[in-house]
């Protein structure tokens, strides 16, 4: 009950804790297309410590996972670029 009372309630300018928790993944993934909803969530995260911590944890997790991204082999990219250009130049040769 105390936890419920601590929850930030929804207003026109600010989302409630429940709304934020429901949309937190999508918000942090940049998947909230409605600007008003995004602004209301941002306003909530500025003032609610509990939700702010949750958001921070997910954001840190995302940053860390991003660093796991494999380094794309530049030679492989070069080969693919050549392959792509090859397709185009073959067409060019056909034109001539």
């Amino acid at each position: 009950m105390k936890a419920l009372l601590r929850m930030v309630r929804s207003t026109d300018d600010m989302a409630s804790c429940i709304e934020v928790l429901h949309n937190l993944d999508a918000y942090l993934d940049g998947e909230i297309n409605d600007q008003r909803t995004a602004r209301r969530i941002a306003a909530h995260l500025d003032v609610c410590r509990r939700c702010g911590m949750k958001a921070e944890t997910i954001a840190e997790l995302k940053s860390s996972l991003r660093r796991l991204a494999p380094t794309v082999d530049p030679n492989a990219l070069d080969r693919l670029r050549r392959f792509a250009r090859g397709l185009q130049s073959e067409q060019g040769a056909d034109d001539r």
Partner: peptide
């Protein structure tokens, strides 16, 4: 059309090689 195709390929495909490989 072939010229368009080459141009469109250059514009719409080549920039995404990195993400495609990932």
């Amino acid at each position: 059309q072939d010229r368009d195709r080459v141009a469109e390929f250059e514009q719409h495909v080549v920039p995404y090689l990195d993400i495609l490989l990932r």
